[in-house]
């Protein structure tokens, strides 16, 4: 599934990384717990309700570079700036975590574990 299709499926807004929307995404991981994100061996797309600078820092350290914020959490200017330094993609949807995961799972995005 391409990022563009993900954006359409989630009726989402792109905050950063418009130029990367043709990229394919195969796996995702959903968590609000950054402690958990730091234990991932792979680099899936992250779906999260935690929207602060620490989310971006954690992704930087864990080398995750695509983040979907759920339930109307909008990344701040600080977050976008930091994410820009790391060439990340930030998108936001009004859908809940459950709905977001359900729709993407249904569309073929694979779980990491």
């Amino acid at each position: 599934m391409t990022l563009r299709e993900i954006v359409e499926t989630l009726n989402a807004t792109v905050y950063l990384g418009e130029e990367r929307l043709n990229e394919e995404v195969t796996t995702a991981f959903a968590s609000d717990l950054m402690s958990d994100v730091l234990t991932l061996k792979d680099t899936p797309m992250l779906i999260t309700g935690l929207c602060n600078v620490q989310t971006i820092r954690t992704c930087d350290m864990a080398t995750l570079d695509i983040v979907v914020f759920v339930r109307n959490k909008k990344p701040t200017a600080d977050m976008v700036e930091l994410a820009e330094d790391n060439d990340m993609v930030l998108i936001a949807t009004s859908y809940s975590m459950f709905k977001t995961c359900g729709l993407l799972f249904d569309a073929g995005i694979q779980p990491l574990y």
Partner: peptide, 15 residues
């Protein structure tokens, strides 16, 4: 609230 505090940090460092 920052997304930390799961008691996973030190074990993760070790790994």
């Amino acid at each position: 609230d920052m997304g930390f505090g799961a008691g996973m940090g030190l074990p993760n460092m070790k790994k």
